[in-house]
Design a protein around this nucleic acid. Sequence first.
DNA 1: TCTGGGGTCCTAGGACCC
DNA 2: TCTGGGGTCCTAGGACCC
Length: 418
Amino acid sequence: MIALCDVNNFYVSCERVFNPSLWHRPVIVLSNNDGCAVARSNEVKALGVKMGTPLFQIKDLIKQHNIAVLSSNYALYGDMSQRVDDIIALYSDQVENYSIDECFIRFDGHEHLDLVQHGKKMRQQIWQWLGLPVCIGIAPSKTLAKVANHCAKKLPSAASVFKLETELQIKKALKDLPVKEIWGVGRQLSKQLNDMGIITALQLRNTDLKSMRKRFSVVMERTILELRGVACIEFDADPEKKKQIICTRSFGEKITRLELLKEALAYHVTRACVTLRQQQSQAQSITISINTNAFNANAKQYSNSITVKLPQASNQTNHFLKAATQGIEKIFRLGYEYKKAGIVLNNITDAGVIQPNLFMPQANDNDSLMSVLDEINNRFGKGTLRSAQEGFNEDWVMKSEIKSPAYTTRFNEVFKVV
DNA sequence: TCTGGGGTCCTAGGACCC
DNA sequence: TCTGGGGTCCTAGGACCC
């Protein structure tokens, strides 16, 4: 059996832990740049606000219902997430962290346990120690665990922990579940399925495996098998290293000058390379992209990207800064208002495994410099030591106007009782 | 006026090899 | 005039997830 544990309305719940005035108020947490609603309390969901709704579209609703609106505070959410993981580790050593607010858990070797009771105990402890509400779904496959988690949230009788085990229980849960709600079935697939007359999860479960694979793909085949209780999506407790590292941001303001784009890209490159070194990897190519604001129908549009390959794999910031500069100079066009720039590190392999380039040998002689740089920034804070290429101009930094303190990760922002 | 960011996996098609 | 068959690797793009 596999359990799926997730925190309800995670960002909102984190904010509520430290701010009791939010307890009985509808709350929204915004995306970067204070652009969209990415987390909503139950009250806000009940008002019909959808995930990702732009803030400006719901201004009236916010006023009308006195909704609390907050910028996102990733330092807080990341730290709270770690604390949840620490508690779950007390209950099982087979945990796959799936996202910042959810994980899959196995209980191999503990088959004698009453898993529902076990889950309730865990839930209670997370609530008591952290003040975060979680829901737990338990089932024979990941996809069904997701369904069970859905039931845990919807069925009052479940009291936030729900198990799907017998054929009867599973069929009952799938009977009224729209295919769109199934993990792995998104907008496109659900539309195609509906056109075929497949409306519910149970109907999908009963389709012919071979012909569905032929018509869709192996992904669909797996989903159907999972719905039948055949676990075929791997459980992976060892987080693999990232295969690509992406850093992208929209700007707080429109940017027209090449120099400023270069600074923003240098900032992204720097962050990405820190992640790259943290997971002890190296990359061999970098993709740079720039975009104007696609939502602005009146503005001239331009977006482009370019991939620059390094002569040999590296994890040194300066190598990628150089490549990024080469790239942006090729794709930059004057006369546009840029809204977004980003980079992707690709072709990631383990550090130290080098295939040197015969004609352009590139010495990786800056390893110790990078270590010192990372150490200083770890100790004294991000950006203490940085490349001049990032500039000192911050015209492009994102908006974050209503952010709560970093209660758990900065001494000068810890919770005060006065 | 104002619209996020970071990932994974799969497939088709092209370039190349012998 | 007539031009095979079996592979690998890479990339772009599309679907999905949170």
